[in-house]
Design a protein around this nucleic acid. Structure first.
Lengths: 194, 194
DNA sequence: CCCAACTTGGAACGACCATTCCAGGTTAGC
DNA sequence: GCTAACCTGGAATGGTCGTTCCAAGTTGGG
């Protein structure tokens, strides 16, 4: 190997991911990426390809490193409804406070931009992953009779997208928690005891 | 009045609205607007101001002409839950088929783009309007005991954003209907009879 | 220690961006 | 029918976009 890269490709990709996550693909220029990473255009293009490739790689990294571990934890948590409640609690906290506050979800944001087929494939993979995790968590829950767990999994997944979107516009955490609580309470039939 | 406009400002604004709706603000150029409307740059800038003003006017038109009439119909429909079900049915049909299929909701899409304060004000106005309409419709419904109608209104509003987002990525209408049905069934306690 | 393979910074490129400007045309009031 | 006020098409502007290119630097194998 005559020369070796002077940077860590995945660490750089994480910075790029954060940039696209916060500001979106269309409004983020290569100049911004250069400024944020400190890399030169040559290294950027040689390592990741053009802007579209870069965005796609960042999007895939987001799903693999950020979303899917959470999905796994949700699916493997055997507590049932409390696991789903914890998922939403943590989601709302992440979206409204801390380092990534008001960034929303990179996948939810990606839905709004004109998407190539490759991007849409990542979006679908994310959706399927979350729905499957919800479905698994619901399997461990005591639900009210007559409730279709597949439909409920879809419902909760759509709800998560709504939470992600609204958090970006500055929605209050309390309001988001109210909406989630109403959904979760309704999955059981012991609503009146609350 | 020495000379008069050679076009209908609102009709043109509707075309602009459709353009921003479908493709987003960042990826739509003034050249696209010129091409779609047939107007010249001079008339465009003289009538509406720059691109940001144009987008804002189009966004406001969307809320006033498309969203809020539907909100009013929902709020004034006295049927209760069937009114909400009809709202979602029509929403899903509009988002998945017909002229605007796969365009999503211009407001939901707007959440994902970096937003100025003025844009965010429109987003909030839309959210408050839909939540209030949901709340009014819920007031006419027979809900299961113990359910907080304000929280349920927030829940259904967030759900609508999820439907809008996913429709843009090509989600099947049947899946969206399943998710909505699960939510609506859970608001009553007669789930087991379905 | 030398060269081939690779990397890097940074200049350069054409295309497109939002916006401005102006000359020429149109119209209401007098 | 003249003029002042307004409108319109389209060229022009300066800036920024994504991308390419190249000279200079670095490093492992022989």
């Amino acid at each position: 190997m005559p020369d070796v890269k002077h940077f860590d490709p995945d660490a750089v990709l994480e910075q790029v991911e954060r940039l696209f996550w916060r500001r979106g693909a269309a409004t983020t220029g290569i100049s911004d990426v250069v400024a944020a990473t400190g890399l030169s255009r040559s290294s950027l293009y040689a390592t990741y390809g053009g802007k579209q490739d870069l965005y796609l790689k960042a999007l895939r990294r987001y799903v693999e490193r950020r979303s899917e571990p959470v999905f796994r934890a949700l699916a493997e948590d055997g507590r049932g409804l409390p696991a789903i409640a914890a998922f939403f609690d943590r989601l709302i906290e992440t979206r409204c406070a801390g380092e990534h506050a008001r960034w929303g979800c990179m996948i939810a944001n990606g839905h709004a931009e004109a998407a190539t087929l490759e991007v849409r494939a990542v979006l679908d993979r994310h959706h399927d992953g979350l729905r499957a995790a919800m479905r698994a968590a619901l399997a461990a829950a005591r639900l009210r009779p007559g409730l279709d767990p597949d439909a409920a999994a879809e419902q909760l997944t759509l709800l998560a997208y709504g939470v992600n979107l609204r958090s970006r516009a500055g929605a209050e955490a309390a309001a988001l928690r109210d909406g989630v609580r109403a959904a979760l309470d309704s999955l059981t039939q012991r609503g009146e005891t609350a």
